[in-house]
Design a protein around this nucleic acid. Structure first.
Lengths: 344, 344
DNA sequence: CTGTTAGCGCTTTCAG
DNA sequence: CTGAAAGCGCTAACAG
């Protein structure tokens, strides 16, 4: 390549300045070439492109986004990469395919910062510059005003501010508890979710409503905080099953804590479901792979993610139309972790 | 709040300038307060913080990263969010938890741009500014020099440049094919993966080696391109099973294309595994949930992701130590989609 | 202790 | 058609 001789080696990242210098033009011209703007002589265009290829230059998304208004990047803001958000991400990803938008998932919960309001922080850090719009996964607070279009999945306040996508938390929890009741259980414990999340309260509501409908007194001693996490689910279950009068069934507010509960039961030498029934919520992939396989309430996570992306697109292109509240339905999936209680 | 009166409403994103103006100080002072630098009078600190809280200001990750050298953000570069990368992401996420690093997954494959070399493009766009290091998932080309530490998962060239994590592609493919042979199959088709990926070639090698060891002639007509995708897996299988002498078993180079193959067989009214055996590779969550459940070779995706993150940390902190080539082993998981061929 | 100044890499008027 | 200059939001010397 004839340009070779004139191109000094560049250390680190190649910047627009490096290209400009090597091609003997100004950075403005390089910028025009990179963005296909009019007003560049064919010869100049060729020369710049040759250097660009030679050096392997790519415009920095960061620097460009600081100047531009539109980036064609959608942000998905999550607390961390775990099964639940991963499932949503797959759905979002499939909807994003072919739209020309790029996806950026950001897990911005620093352990030292308050968990509450992490999404406001992440959004502030990315919006207005890097991303054109955002999908908030299980946000903890309501954000009335945002600088970019937003869709919230399973949000704290349900209706109200931004567009939302959720599924039937109360109905699901009722279905789950009803299933346990129909098997003959009466002492049903509940491993509550993260109390800063609305879904957690709704599921507890469903649990209580179901008990009440069956004429069973609510026993606060049977409700512990599973935190939506495997570790906490295991620990609370250890406590629960160690009592003199343990529950015969446990409804964990999500699959992860249910999986922890199964682990705890097995550690104590108990059989699931023979000695204790355990039921989860969400139907993450791991639910179908546990031993025994987990009975749970399946949320249509894939569809929820895809729908959220579509609603965001509507807001981005068609104005306010995407500002809806979408409510998708789930269904009970009976696998192996539930059975009638032992009669003794 | 007493500051209230002095703070005019700000539209859009709140910037450091807005805060400075509202607090009556310079932007430099605000920056110092935000970053906890020494040399700010307590009174000033308080006043600034009050305004920060009032306005809900957060420093822009983008702007800050342009100036700073370290951002505490690790980038995970993928082509798209699909089951394989989602599993890795979970592993990476669990390893990242508690390290103080934030994770940013970027799916930067624009459909119009060449697929080959997407990782170089993505890396150039993010590295040097936004991210301190990167994990490249199934990169297509070898990148000898990068501006930030990099770990590649299941890379194109295996050994060589950057640190790598992979699993036993050849061995896995042999195990899979051997399983089919041991069941009595002799006409075994192969749905090859994406030919731009090394793993695809290695798996085909394993397939061929296994056949050869069994004394079966390699039949090129039985090898079609499944592209690692569900859609292509289905289409190629439709072709395969429509022939006068169809294969009795199909080895799909990954689970997604295997799932497509199952769908195709069922569309044609064939039973899996009675009429045709189908086997996959990867063991993504979906493999355990299909009907019939998929027999496959399980890669330790979670562990691979976690290991990649750890190796990156080593490079970031301890110098060059993380520049290893880690090779994790997988195992055959026999489920329901394989059986002996029909004897007729 | 505080503010001024100089950029980070890029895009965008606006002269030449 | 091309380049100089301003500025996006922020941090980091360096004066005052």
């Amino acid at each position: 390549m004839s340009v070779d001789a004139g191109v000094p080696p560049v250390l680190g990242r190649v910047t627009i300045t490096d290209v400009a210098r090597a091609a003997g033009v100004s950075v403005a011209t390089v910028s025009k070439v990179m963005n296909g703007r009019y007003g560049v002589a064919p010869a100049t265009y060729e020369r710049v492109m040759a250097v660009v290829t030679e050096l392997g230059y790519e415009t920095s998304l960061i620097a460009a986004s600081l100047r531009r208004s539109k980036t064609n990047v959608i942000g998905v803001l999550i607390t961390e990469f775990e099964p639940y958000s991963a499932e949503l991400l797959k759905g979002i990803g499939s909807a994003a395919h072919g739209t020309g938008y790029e996806l950026l998932a950001y897990a911005g919960w620093a352990e030292d910062s308050p968990r509450d309001g992490w999404e406001r922080r992440s959004l502030s850090r990315l919006a207005g510059t890097l991303i054109d719009g955002a999908i908030l996964v299980t946000p903890t607070v309501l954000m009335p005003e945002t600088s970019v279009p937003v869709v919230a999945i399973d949000p704290h306040t349900g209706r109200g501010g931004p567009a939302t996508v959720d599924s039937d938390n109360i109905g699901g929890a009722r279905a789950v508890t009803d299933h346990l009741l129909s098997l003959g259980h009466t002492r049903i414990a509940h491993l509550r979710g993260r109390t800063d999340l609305e879904s957690s309260h709704l599921r507890e509501q469903g649990y209580r409503a179901s008990l009440e409908a069956a004429g069973i007194d609510f026993d606060p001693d049977l409700v512990l905080d599973g935190e939506y996490r495997r570790k906490e689910g295991r620990e609370r279950t250890l406590d629960l099953l160690d009592r003199t009068e343990p529950p015969t069934a446990i409804f964990a507010a999500n699959d992860l804590s249910a999986l922890g509960a199964i682990a705890a039961a097995q550690e104590l030498g108990l059989r699931v479901p023979e000695d204790v029934s355990i039921i989860g919520f969400d139907d993450i992939p791991e639910a179908g792979r546990s031993e025994p396989q987990l009975t749970t309430f399946a949320q249509p996570l894939h569809a929820m993610g895809a729908e959220a992306f579509r609603m965001l697109m509507e807001q981005l292109t068609g104005g306010e139309n995407g500002r809806r509240h979408e409510h998708l339905l789930g269904s009970l999936v009976v696998r192996e972790s539930t059975a009638p209680p032992l009669t003794r």
